[in-house]
Design a binder for these strands. Structure first.
Lengths: 193, 193
DNA sequence: GTCTATATGGCGATAGAC
DNA sequence: GTCTATCGCCATATAGAC
């Protein structure tokens, strides 16, 4: 049993935990369910991780990194500030599954544990900062009016996404998400015109 | 033991469930915790409600009614369309506690049970429709440009609130919520000018 | 209507064999 | 590294006395 199998078991544990946290949250995810999803035994899991919290920490950090990287993919490409933001907003998403990070803010045990909340805070902090940079750039280029607040506008953009997920899940269909994005894009284009 | 005590026990059970669902969600709320919070015994709870799901149903329906009524309070008052929407957005909120309804969309058991999800869907449906009415009104009065889509804009407004809660909880402070609202209000005023 | 007793099963973890 | 056994506790009721 070389390093390969070791890494693969840990990887399966982390990825299974990511999926379960996404679907059922921290409170709703049991070590047993993780083991079943990862096809790993009880002993195996507790050998690699001290417990549920430590495994969740690894999974949340991984998800945070993936999320910010995905955002960077859309935001770093070519185009005007508006085009890049719209591309990010309209990216293909599994709307009804919700946001893997945003979902965790509903979990009291995650919010109460600094080690679990920190990666969530960091992911959203990075994305909001990146959006604010792009909007500030758009201002410099005369694309947005001088009076536009980049930080506040960036928060609104991020909030529309997170809120769009919430409204869509409540409705049981994608529409509210798409509508909210459409409404925001329209407003953004309105002030740019 | 007349009707008074009976009603009071049921009331305490419902209200305690509302609080616990808000704080810990459906999965994280146990009948035992509800009984403790309501100062009601095991037998008492199961006498009035068939089980956790039925009690949750009553609590969610109550919360939905309270939420739509509160929204109506802000939205029905005097002022222009923009003023009424801004008043609704800026209403005093316990930001870090999140939205009692929005929170439930993260709960897989709530989403999976039509009886539990329906009141959530209805509450958001009502609020979005009411916002769309007001925006349509503002269009008729020349307050908003003719090109503005009331339904999409309403979805964006509702999404900013829900997303603002998520961002604020992630950050552990109110700021992102306030910023998102500020960003949206600025955009709304921008297109109205 | 409310109480206590009881039941089944899952949670989250530890222990020690292999 | 992984397995099985075991643990104490809680979840979600049900049963029947009072």
């Amino acid at each position: 049993m070389g390093t390969v199998e070791w890494v693969e078991t840990v990887e399966r544990l982390i990825r299974s935990t990511q999926e379960l946290l996404w679907e059922r949250g921290y409170v709703g995810t049991s070590p047993k369910a993780i083991q079943a999803a990862a096809e790993a035994g009880q002993g195996s899991m507790y050998h690699h991780f001290a417990g549920k919290a430590e495994l969740a920490r690894a999974a949340i950090e991984r998800s945070g990194a993936e999320l910010t990287e995905a955002a960077e993919q859309e935001l770093a490409g070519p185009g005007t500030a508006t085009e890049r933001i719209v591309r990010y907003l309209r990216r293909d998403r599994e709307v009804l599954r919700g946001c893997r990070m945003g979902r965790l803010t509903a979990d009291p045990d995650v919010m109460a544990d600094p080690a679990l909340r920190a990666p969530v805070a960091e992911a959203f902090g990075r994305i909001r900062a990146r959006l604010a940079d792009i909007i500030a750039e758009g201002k410099r280029d005369g694309e947005f009016p001088a009076g536009l607040d980049p930080v506040a506008t960036a928060a609104a953009v991020a909030a529309v996404l997170q809120g769009g997920y919430v409204l869509a899940r409540a409705a049981g269909e994608d529409d509210p998400f798409e509508l909210a994005v459409q409404g925001l894009v329209h407003l953004l284009e309105g002030v740019s015109a």
